[in-house]
Design a protein around this nucleic acid. Structure first.
Lengths: 194, 194
DNA sequence: AATATAAACGGACCGCGGTCCGTTTAGTCT
DNA sequence: AGACTAAACGGACCGCGGTCCGTTTATATT
């Protein structure tokens, strides 16, 4: 059966598998910094051109590497159990969202950072737009009325910027708990006033 | 008269002058992107090593280029006339701070962006710490009591992140006025609740 | 004026992310 | 089986920021 959209060639599929395997391997050994595109190509026994054909850029590769966990995170705040998912009060969901996001950034640290250096800035990543919408929706549902709900939501998500969070954690010894508490306070204050 | 700390050698001073001149020249012609370290060295008639000896890194050069205007900005919010400087109500000063910061980022766009890629992230820049303190001070003075005033202030300044602001302006056509209004709303909300 | 020395100099060199284009190959059509 | 073609391949090549180290030079000292 001939598919409507051209199917992936078998050698391409095999190489993609090899590359992802090699990438995880390199990261496991020496962290995200050890993953250079040249080394990846060599380690996977593949030409450098192939690496870029597959993933477009280093950031694209990181995004692919994160894809599974990102999808899982999205599924949790969109469809998962409360307080993160539907069912809880909007403000509780918002607080949970920040808390979980902080945990996520802590867990995947360097990968998230490396994924952020996309070609056209770290705001083009589709996931970012989704978070903004989600936060905006929760704000509305929580009774927060603003003339610029999108910008207000953006201000809140800016607080969760991975680079900022990791900087505070690594260079200033701030704990995830304090960050989560601060997020909670911020959200509460924003929602609290008329 | 021999100075206590070794004076700058005359050739060094002359070369620094040449380099700054050449740098502004290149930027004027082709924007910040046209300023590569190799071209700068060539344009200034100086070895590449000299460029790095002088400024440490590209970000360091950008910081030097911005030094004057940064200092002027700092002077204005520390000692200048109200509502930005002392004399106005703390919350009005805070709103003015964001508004002026947005205008600053718009004016110096690419330079600010390039200066942000410092060696150890864009949070090491001394000016950032100063803004945080300033915002924190204004929050306190405005009667905002928090268990983590530093983190709360940091969340607010994160909203003013140049990359975010410029992205919204350039890619989404958001005006400075809307950004300033959103900042004002955010600050008001944060200050408004008990 | 000659000497000493610390500072400044310059450019070859490195590894990086990313591009280009001639070559190879998997899948299809006869 | 053989021919055709679009896709995938691979590695030389590029410009970048940044480093290293042998050479030059401004300045203080005598």
């Amino acid at each position: 059966m001939t598919p409507v959209t051209a199917a992936e060639r078998s050698d391409a599929a095999r190489n993609r598998e090899r590359l992802l395997l090699a990438a995880r391997d390199l990261i496991e050994q020496g962290g995200a910094a050890a993953l250079t595109m040249d080394r990846l190509a060599e380690h996977a026994g593949v030409g450098k051109g192939t690496v870029f054909r597959r993933f477009g850029s280093r950031a694209g590769l990181m995004l692919t590497l994160l894809n599974d966990s990102e999808a899982a995170f999205q599924a949790r705040f969109l469809f998962g159990p409360p307080p993160l998912g539907p069912g809880a009060l909007p403000m509780d969901r918002l607080i949970a969202f920040g808390t979980e996001r902080i945990a996520y950034v802590v867990e995947y640290g360097d990968l998230v950072l490396a994924a952020g250096n996309a070609s056209r800035g770290r705001f083009e990543v589709p996931a970012v737009a989704l978070w903004n919408q989600h936060v905006e929706m929760l704000l509305r549902a929580g009774g927060v009325e603003s003339r610029e709900p999108g910008l207000l939501a953006g201000s809140l998500t800016a607080t969760l910027d991975p680079e900022r969070l990791l900087h505070l954690i690594r260079e200033h010894g701030v704990t995830s708990e304090r960050l989560a508490a601060s997020w909670s306070e911020l959200v509460t204050r924003v929602a609290g006033s008329a």
